[in-house]
Design a protein around this nucleic acid. Structure first.
Lengths: 222, 222
DNA sequence: TCAATAATTCTTGTATACAATAATTATATT
DNA sequence: AATATAATTATTGTATACAAGAATTATTGA
């Protein structure tokens, strides 16, 4: 079946790690995975190597593969880069989006309006992802788009709880409204700035950000 | 020897690919690599999987592993992101560098002055890398620094010839002077802007950039 | 009973063996 | 002689076997 097993395995594990179904810190036992997926250790190990290169798992020699825990420092650094990349996507999208893409973005934004009213966190979460990915694509830079999506994925386990905070949902929606306007109007600088602060730590206090983090997922050693 | 063989292998191949010793498009034969490194196919394959995830090689199912050729489109996209990341590094470095780091940067810059006069391309190339990496580090964001370094590495095979163009060496040195000043003076915006254009395609004409590209390293199919 | 050490078991890392597909060469037909 | 097809070879993908080191359990001595 043409090397698909190791790739399929990787994709599946990637999915589960990103969605937090496999918690950071857990050990990925090779034989357990062979039994679960019904393959030999060879493709399992190849999948683990791939995840290792994606920085999703950490391979400690002779000890095994562990779902990577980020240190607080790493997280802050990654969020900072995320803010920059999102900002860049917004800047380019404001410049380059076709009229159809701008219409689509507006539509995607409006989808989430009732979800906010209903406090439907899960649906809002999905709509939020779609909204942001539309902006990535709108940059017309596939490499940037992929990089940004990747980084977003890696941060997902640490972000899921954030939206559930007090009135983060309302704020997020309002910010999306402003972002949408900026992009549609082709206001590069504003789109960049709004998206840069939208994702980031500075929005809301740093303490709120810390409070939202599930501390058991965090590498305390570093 | 604790899983080091596959990691060592990866590092060695990575090195050779980045430096252009293994040309984009060449097939990496598994048994040839086993003979060369004196190991079995298992660690060889694991190394290839890793390089695949790093986007340095492309694994075509049942056909083998090939050193990745970038399409022109991908290259342009990657250079655009590179410019943004460099700019961000510069912005943060101007803000966060310690006095020692600023002194060090100045010193690193001055090293290359005689190299320009001597037209010592290879030494200038190395000094240039050191200069830029000092800025990455100066951002005090290790994740950003690593990302930027990675991307720079991936673009290296397509950049080596650029410096050899007409008076690119002089221009580069002058740009470094301005960048150094901006960072030392803590001028965030200027540092960001200068570094953003320093790496990029817009600097010099796009035609010059195209002309500097070794077209046989480029994926013409995409 | 507890600590230290030895013996055992388990797990990873590497090599080899086998299966399936692609590439190549040989053969046959027009 | 040229092309199409069949046979052969080579190479990748997967499974298994073996070796070496870590973790665990058992044993011994105080």
């Amino acid at each position: 079946m043409a090397n698909m097993s190791s790739n399929d395995l990787r994709r599946q594990l990637e999915h589960e790690i990103v969605l937090g179904e496999i918690v950071p810190g857990t050990r990925l036992d090779e034989v357990a995975l062979t039994e679960r997926f019904g393959v030999s250790r060879t493709p399992v190990r190849e999948a683990l190597q791939q995840l290792n290169m994606m920085q999703l798992v950490e391979i400690r020699p002779r000890r095994g593969a562990f779902v990577k825990k980020m240190s607080l420092r790493e997280l802050v650094d990654m969020f900072e880069v995320m803010a920059e990349l999102e900002g860049t996507c917004g800047k380019l999208a404001a410049d380059r989006m076709t009229d159809e893409e701008r219409d689509k973005l507006k539509a995607l934004h409006l989808i989430s309006e009732p979800l906010v009213a209903d406090r439907d966190y899960d649906s809002y979460y999905k709509a939020n992802v779609a909204f942001h990915e539309a902006i990535y694509k709108g940059s017309h830079n596939e490499f940037l788009s992929e990089q940004t999506k990747n980084l977003r994925n890696r941060l997902t386990p640490y972000r899921r709880l954030q939206l559930r905070q007090s009135n983060r949902l309302n704020n997020s929606f309002q910010e999306h409204a402003d972002i949408t306007d900026a992009i549609i109007n082709g206001n590069k600088e504003l789109a960049e700035q709004l998206l840069g602060t939208h994702v980031t730590v500075q929005q809301g206090s740093f303490n709120d950000f810390l409070a939202s983090l599930p501390m058991d997922l965090i590498d305390q050693s570093a």
